[in-house]
């Protein structure tokens, strides 16, 4: 606990606790539409946090993170589809498959000295390559998709049924909301703690200057691989959630580059390399998108939503290039004190 809040001003800590408690209470007030948007926010925050580990903290650009969503979703989805195994068991192969794929791409890329844009392109190429393979892989349904059986949307409100709903991830939306919200908080805590350890500082060193990091005794390849693997696993968790929440999986949509881009926009908008940037960015962009959807329906002009979305993104990057969170943090006086200040 101590190192979790070390250096954080008291009011920032209380503010954070309040926000989290409010988020946990949200299903008591909101249902239906709002809840489904909140689920989307938390889901994107999880993916954003995962991408942020790799790019924001370890400095390795990936534009193919949809690959890990897809692998996570298909690993757990296929187990459920073929053997009836639930999501929490499916999480294990999801972690293994995504982690192994991350390690493979990282190892190939870093060993051959591929950096920056070139590495990013390698990640896209792998995502696209796997997408096409999955399109032609009959066991998981190929391009015609895989559908998970939806059942008991409404459950009895006794302890056993609720526990069962959480265990099988079959139930009403608030079950999914609590799972993804807890996942988001867990990712936040994990990354926060990680960034206070040797691993976290080594990532920062590698991000800032690889040669300097190496000269200080850091095995750059090992720590970069670790970043990719951890990031891939966190993303795969999002993928497992996606599979059981959406129940329909198409390679074309799940591995699509649009999905890779969607998950990183929030991070850049929120503040890359910060803990709350991915969360703030995910909430801001999702609600912006929803608001624009409604406006678009009013005006009934196709494309208006995404056009405005693009303009909003340009505006943010022009006026707050470091993202919203560093600016908001200063505004609220919640900047972290350096331990020695």
């Amino acid at each position: 606990m101590r190192s979790l809040f070390e250096g954080v001003p008291a009011r920032a800590a209380w503010g954070l606790v309040c926000v989290i408690v409010l988020l946990y209470l949200a299903p008591l007030v909101f249902g239906g539409y709002v809840l489904s948007v909140l689920i989307l926010c938390c889901y994107l925050a999880v993916l954003g946090q995962a991408w942020n580990v790799m790019m924001g903290f370890a400095g390795q650009l990936s534009l193919g993170h949809a690959l890990y969503i897809g692998l996570g979703a298909y690993a757990s989805g296929a187990l459920f589809f073929h053997f009836g195994l639930g999501p929490w068991i499916g999480l294990i192969p999801a972690f293994i498959v995504a982690g192994a794929m991350g390690a493979l791409i990282g190892w190939l890329g870093f060993r051959f000295g591929i950096r920056g844009v070139y590495f990013a392109l390698l990640t896209i190429a792998f995502a696209e390559f796997v997408r096409i393979l999955f399109d032609h892989w009959g066991w998981i349904g190929g391009s015609s998709g895989m559908f998970l059986l939806v059942q008991n949307r409404n459950i009895d409100m006794d302890a056993a049924s609720i526990a069962n709903a959480f265990w099988t991830l079959r139930g009403p939306n608030w079950v999914f909301y609590y799972v993804i919200l807890t996942g988001m908080v867990a990712c936040l805590v994990t990354v926060r703690l990680l960034m206070r350890t040797r691993v976290g500082y080594y990532w920062l060193a590698i991000r800032e200057d690889q040669e300097a990091a190496q000269a200080m005794g850091i095995n750059v390849l090992r720590y970069k691989l670790l970043a990719v693997v951890i990031s891939a696993m966190m993303t795969a968790f999002g993928g497992v959630f996606y599979a059981f929440y959406n129940n329909t999986l198409y390679p074309e949509s799940i591995f699509s580059i649009d999905r890779s881009i969607e998950l990183l926009l929030g991070v850049i908008i929120g503040g890359i390399g910060t803990l709350f940037g991915p969360i703030l960015g995910a909430f801001a962009l999702t609600w912006l998108g929803e608001g624009l959807s409604i406006t678009q329906e009013w005006f009934d002009i196709a494309g208006l939503k995404l056009l405005t979305y693009g303009v909003a993104m340009l505006a943010i990057i022009l006026f707050r290039p470091a993202g919203l969170w560093p600016w908001l943090r200063r505004l609220l006086g919640m900047e972290e004190r350096r331990p020695d200040a």
């Binding site: 926009l265 002009i301 196709a302 494309g303 208006l304 995404l306 693009g310 993104m313 990057i317």
Partner: peptide, 13 residues
Amino acid sequence: IGVALILTNGLDM
């Protein structure tokens, strides 16, 4: 990406 979004959806409109 912002420019791309604007172009695509501008053309769509």
